[in-house]
């Protein structure tokens, strides 16, 4: 077994363990942290696949941004664990049905002649100076420029929608105007009053 394979099995093992813990552990914050671990190991596996751009972006976007916001929300919610455990038996048939369907679909896909290992050509190892990022960028901005732009526009629409949904104008909100604060002079805030001494002595 080569060094690369040892690394693969290590990262894959930790990934599977973390993914299992995400759905079995009771505490939602710990569950989110295990999800972070799972993302990180998935990124390591992608690096083994020589897809370093995707791997680093996975860490940057999901670990560095999405999961931080996730943790924010989960930490601030006061989740009642007893209530979470209720109704397990009630939902079990539905969950089981979905699980069985998923397994069947996976088996069908993996066994179908279109997706067999023999159908796909072996990936060619690239030279050390091959720039993954440059190739992806070239492809995204030439061949797939319209889908890329459409996706960007969709994301922009989603951002605007999210902001409008959460922006409530409240009458009693008070906020400062920084320009006004910067232009304030001493004489606007301070009044020096000359007072004669009240008593001599």
């Amino acid at each position: 077994m080569g060094f690369e394979q040892i690394l693969f099995y290590f990262f894959a093992g930790v990934l599977l363990f973390a993914a299992t813990m995400v759905i079995t552990i009771r505490n939602p914050v710990k569950s989110a942290l295990f999800l972070v671990l799972a993302f990180f190991n998935a990124a390591a596996l992608w690096i083994l696949l020589e897809a370093e751009f995707l791997a680093i972006v996975l860490v940057l976007v999901y670990v560095g941004a999405v999961m931080v916001l996730f943790l924010f929300v989960v930490m601030m919610l006061d989740i009642n664990l007893v209530k979470l455990r209720e109704g397990f038996g009630e939902y079990l048939p539905y969950g089981g049905l979905v699980a069985v369907l998923l397994v069947i679909e996976l088996v069908v896909v993996l066994n179908s002649p279109q997706f067999g290992l023999g159908e796909m050509p072996d990936p060619v190892g690239q030279a050390a100076d091959y720039s993954n990022t440059r190739e992806l960028g070239r492809l995204l901005y030439t061949t797939y420029v319209y889908p890329f732009e459409i996706a960007a526009l969709l994301l922009l629409v989603a951002i605007i929608a999210a902001i409008t949904l959460t922006m409530r104008k409240r009458k009693d909100t008070r906020y400062q105007n920084p320009a006004q604060q910067m232009s304030v002079q001493a004489k606007d805030r301070l009044r020096v009053v000359k007072m004669p001494a009240e008593r001599k002595g």
Partner: peptide, 8 residues
């Protein structure tokens, strides 16, 4: 990118 990812 690696540095950005790690510092994040």
């Amino acid at each position: 990118l690696f540095i950005l990812a790690l510092t994040s």
